[in-house]
Amino acid sequence: MNNLPASPAPAPLSFNAEPAWAVKMESLSKTFILRRNHSPSLKSQFVGFFHKRYREERETLWALKEISLEIQRGEVFGFIGRNGSGKSTLLKIISGILEPSSGTIQVQPGARIGTMIELGVGFNPDLTGRENVYLNASLYGMSRAEVDAVFPAVVEFSELERFIDTPLRNYSSGMSARLGFSSAIFINPDILLIDEVLSVGDEAFQKKSSEKMAQIHRSGKTILFVSHSAAAMEEYCDRICLLDQGRMVAIGKPAEVLKEYHRMTGVGV
C-alpha cells in the first residue's frame, strides 16, 4: 500500500502487508457539477436559451481528489474531516450509490455492504414498523425467510415491541432512529458503513449500540465509520483518515491523526 499519491501533505502511513483488503481505492476522484439556476424542466432550459439571467451556470467541484486507500478486512476504519470534506461522498461511492468520476474502487467480492448513511431512510411513514423492516431488508437483497429469522432480534433490540404494528408517522424521531439502527445492524453485512449515526436514542440505547458495534467488530466484520466526534473515533477505530476538501491529508493511528485534525480546525485537544 505504498501507492499514496503525491498529495500536498504526505501522510504517515501505517499498513498491514496482508493482501486481504475489504475495500481498495486507487487515485479515486469524484467531481460534481454545481449548477446555478438549474431546474430539471424543459421550460427553464428553453428560457435560459434566450435570457442570460436564467441561464444555467456550471462549476466543477472536486468532492474527492486522488484518494488511494486500502482498508483491511476486519478493520474499523474512520473518516474524519470538516463539513464538505468529502467523507459522506466517499461512503456513498464505497456503497455503490455514486460512481467515481475517475480512478478505481474495488470491494471485497460478494460482500454485503450495510449502509447507515442516515437511519431509516428507506422508511415510509405510512407503513408500520414491521412493514418497514421487511421492505428495508429487501433493499439489501434479503429473502423473506432471512428477515423472518432476524425479525424478533430486530424488534427486541429496538425495544419497540408495543409499537411495531403502528405506522411510523406515530413514532418519535428517537423511536424510528432506534428501529433504523436495529434493522441496519441485523442485515448482517460484511462491511458496515456508518455515517454519524451512533448518537441515536437515549444513553442506555447508545451504550447498547456501542456494545453491539464492538460485537460486530469482534466477529471479524469491517466497519467504516464517519464522524465529527473525535471521542467516538478514538474509541472505535483502528485507523483513521483525515480528509480536507476532498484530499486525504493524513492517515494512521487515531491519536496522531486527531492531533492533525485539531490543529487544522483550531480546536484544542
Partner: peptide
C-alpha cells in the same frame, strides 16, 4: 429519491 440517494440496490 430517498431510497436512490441513500441505499445501494
Amino acid at each position: 429519491a430517498g431510497l436512490v440517494k441513500k441505499v445501494y440496490f
